[in-house]
Design a protein around this nucleic acid. Structure first.
Length: 99
DNA sequence: GTCGTGACTAGCC
DNA sequence: CGGCTAGCCACGA
């Protein structure tokens, strides 16, 4: 199991309507300091529709970025039932998912 | 083997 | 609240 695989696998488990943070994902795979690597994995993730990388945001609730554009990411989140306010998740602390 | 880059984080000013 | 710095990890050239 490669590092990226772990990242994608963890993100895949995020249920619809919920989100997670890079730090959480990194911590879950046993490398809480690999937040940068996690972001890298998501950006290069070849499973765009399979891996909901758009449900992963920064630790402070901000969007961060997205390969298809932050705007697109926000739209997707809103579609999932997650409200975004000024580039930040609306009440993300209550929607954060961590096994 | 080394360097640069990135969807990051935490600390400090 | 905004900006800067250092530390962190993986990947490609």
């Amino acid at each position: 199991m490669d590092f990226n695989q772990k990242v994608w696998n963890s993100i895949k488990k995020i249920p619809k309507g919920k989100i997670s943070t890079y730090k959480l994902v990194a911590k879950k795979i046993g490398k809480p300091k690999a937040v940068r690597a996690v972001g890298n994995a998501c950006n290069k993730n070849p499973f765009s529709p399979l891996v909901p990388c758009h449900r992963v945001v920064k630790s402070d609730g901000s969007i961060g970025g997205f390969a298809f554009g932050k705007k697109k990411k926000i739209e997707l989140l809103k579609k999932e039932g997650i409200q975004v306010k000024k580039g930040k998740i609306n009440g993300f602390e209550e929607k954060v998912y961590y096994e």
